[in-house]
């Protein structure tokens, strides 16, 4: 018990800004902020406190490794003489502070796609390599949270450099990696009582958070289900608006577009969505996914079967954003339960 305490530090809640200021000497700090009615992650300005009284942010912080719009290359001049132009710029290291365990899990899921032995996405890798993760345990999981289904959970530390827990009057911060420990080293040491409090909170959260039983059987179950008529039933209500893919922390499909202003231009990666027909439309007019049910099937199959087949992990972390934000109340948990029963 004593040994493990070396890695346990604490901050009084009213001292959080002091700690952020220390971090900001060497790092850009990205943390939850109140933006109108929502909580969103953003860079903390001078003297700006993180907003830590939240369940989860409306959007996941995936945009900090996989920006919604990201420049690949810039160019200028007349069309038949253009060559790529590069600007070298150093990047300050970043800390994502207060990210929830489900969103950390999603990051680990995305790593497998963007950085693997086939090809590396250098843009993603650069942002990812420059980012430390200070994750934040969930004292009050929402009814739509089902992270416990995916080897995750409200207090999962996987992928974190340091782990923050709200124990009422103070936050305890546990160092997970060497880098994380180094950063929190100057904070006062925590004690056994604090850890005991955390244990109780964790126990309560683990009891509350929902879990889809036997989720690991879903990929195999889906294998023979491509032609099953259930897809039409599942997608009947779907409007094809794409909000589920926009908010999903593991959705990674993107488009590549060129933008010109006068004779200056840039090529960008933009988020895209498998919910839109143009996503797969051929130049010839041929359309492999003509109907909405085919696109819904692609989304479910990609997350729960194809991704698992390619990377040995299901591409969902149970954050529940697609459940809370779907305008027609499509609930992926119900879809999975339905599939299990078929």
């Amino acid at each position: 018990m004593k040994d493990s305490l070396k890695n346990v530090k604490y901050i009084e809640k009213d001292k959080i800004l002091d700690f952020i200021k220390v971090l900001q000497k060497d790092y850009t700090v990205i943390a939850p902020k109140k933006v109108k009615d929502f909580v969103l992650f953003g860079e903390l300005k001078d003297n700006e406190e993180p907003y830590l009284d939240f369940l989860n942010s409306r959007q996941s912080p995936k945009e900090f490794y996989f920006p919604q719009t990201e420049t690949i290359v810039e160019y200028e001049g007349i069309i038949d003489k253009r060559v790529p132009k590069f600007s070298e710029n150093d990047m300050k290291k970043r800390i994502i502070f207060g990210i929830r365990p489900c969103d950390v899990k999603s990051t680990l899921i995305l790593d497998k796609l963007f950085v693997n032995e086939d090809y590396i996405d250098d843009y993603y890798k650069r942002l990812r390599d420059n980012t430390l993760i200070f994750s934040f345990g969930c004292n009050n999981p929402k009814t739509t949270c089902f992270c416990a289904s995916f080897e995750c959970g409200p207090f999962s530390e996987e992928g974190s450099d340091a782990f923050i827990t709200d124990i009422g009057d103070k936050f305890i911060i546990e160092g997970i990696t060497e880098q994380g420990n180094k950063i929190i080293d100057k904070l006062p040491d925590g004690d056994g009582g604090m850890l005991k409090k955390k244990k109780e909170i964790k126990k309560n959260s683990d009891n509350v958070v929902s879990c889809i039983e036997n989720i690991q059987k879903i990929p195999e179950k889906l294998r023979g289900m491509f032609e099953n008529p259930v897809w039409e039933e599942i997608s009947e209500r779907c409007l094809g608006c794409g909000v589920c893919t926009y908010l999903c922390p593991t959705c990674h499909c993107f488009d590549i577009q060129d933008e010109m202003i006068g004779e200056d231009g840039r090529r960008v990666k933009n988020w895209d969505s498998c919910m839109f027909p143009i996503f797969t439309l051929h130049g010839s007019g041929h359309q492999p996914r003509e109907f909405r049910f085919q696109r819904m099937r692609q989304r479910i199959m990609h997350k729960f079967n194809y991704y698992e087949e390619n990377f040995n992990i299901i591409a969902c972390s149970g954050c529940g954003r697609c459940v809370t934000e779907c305008p027609v109340n499509i609930d992926v948990r119900e879809i999975l339960e339905k599939i299990k029963k078929l």
Binding site: L113, F114, D118, Y119, C253, D255, C274, F279, H282, Y306
Partner: peptide, 17 residues
Amino acid sequence: NRMKCGIGKCGRCNIGP
């Protein structure tokens, strides 16, 4: 198939996995 990235990241040209 319709393609963008050409390196298996952008997610649109899949046939199954």
